[in-house]
């Protein structure tokens, strides 16, 4: 069921779209930026178009989130099966510990071992963003009503069928919340990834800080903030529609 868009949501998205358009088209961006930053020589970041940087950023964040989702759900399923259950406390403890490590630290630690560039940043993003997916997969699979699982077994379903047709669909809203968290974390950490040569929207921020050009910093900051807000909003809506589906299945 689709919920009607409220006036405020509509206004918010329209404003966001407008900002995004201004940021993505250099010929509009240049005069707009010269209003708040009159002394900037070169208000628009010259090395790459912001649209290209945004695509790089999106690709890096989503690719990392995709890999993290596969690993996180896989480990989560493995640790909740009878054969892997002895690993469950360990997986829980390790994930809780790893989550207290700041993402910037994971990034900084990965670089000496893998080198500079796109791939080490991707690796660091995957390592860190596995955790929310894993946590939520565990929470989703562990908190299912036992009556439902017993009913499924009573119907003669195999373990695999129970997992695929009952457990995963019921846990989907919780798992997808974890995926959303991992995407949002990735968008943020990928900004810092520019320091390691990963490109993306962090590069105008870093270049602007080095060259003392606040207009560049502003572009990168505004675009990455908008991207995080947009992705969070879109995934949040998807989650809600999935949640309403699985509620229908529950009754």
């Amino acid at each position: 069921m689709k919920t009607p868009w409220s006036y405020r949501q509509f206004l918010g998205s329209a404003l966001g779209m407008l900002f995004m358009l201004i940021l993505l088209i250099p010929s509009i961006l240049s005069p707009v930026l010269s209003v708040p930053f009159p002394e900037a020589q070169d208000p628009v970041f010259p090395r790459k178009m912001l649209a290209v940087l945004a695509l790089e950023h999106l690709w890096l964040s989503l690719a990392a989130a995709g890999l993290a989702t596969i690993i996180g759900i896989g480990v989560g399923i493995a640790a909740t099966r009878p054969a892997g259950r002895t690993f469950l406390p360990l997986v829980r403890d390790a994930s809780a510990l790893a989550q207290t490590v700041p993402p910037a630290a994971v990034l900084a630690l990965a670089i000496p071992f893998v080198g500079f560039g796109f791939q080490p940043v991707l690796l660091a993003l995957v390592l860190y963003s596995v955790l929310p997916v894993l946590d939520n997969t565990l929470a989703g699979l562990e908190n299912l009503p036992s009556a439902v699982l017993e009913a499924a077994q009573g119907m003669g379903m195999t373990r695999f069928q129970v997992l695929l047709q009952i457990e995963l669909p019921l846990a989907l809203p919780v798992i997808s919340a974890g995926i959303r968290t991992s995407v949002v974390i990735n968008v943020g950490t990928a900004t810092i990834g520019a320091l390691a040569g990963a490109g993306g929207l962090g590069s105008p921020i870093v270049a602007g800080l080095i060259r003392d050009n606040p207009a560049w910093v502003f572009q990168g900051a505004a675009a990455s903030a908008l991207m995080a807000l947009f992705l969070n909003g879109i995934l949040g809506r998807l989650e809600k529609s999935w949640a309403s589906h699985s509620k229908v299945e529950k009754t």
Partner: peptide, 22 residues
């Protein structure tokens, strides 16, 4: 608050620079 939390920390630093300088 949930929406604001999604803004990357580096972006927040960047966005605050210009108004504070002004």
């Amino acid at each position: 608050v949930d929406a604001a939390q999604t803004i990357p920390s580096m972006a927040l630093f960047g966005l605050l620079m210009a108004p504070l300088a002004a």
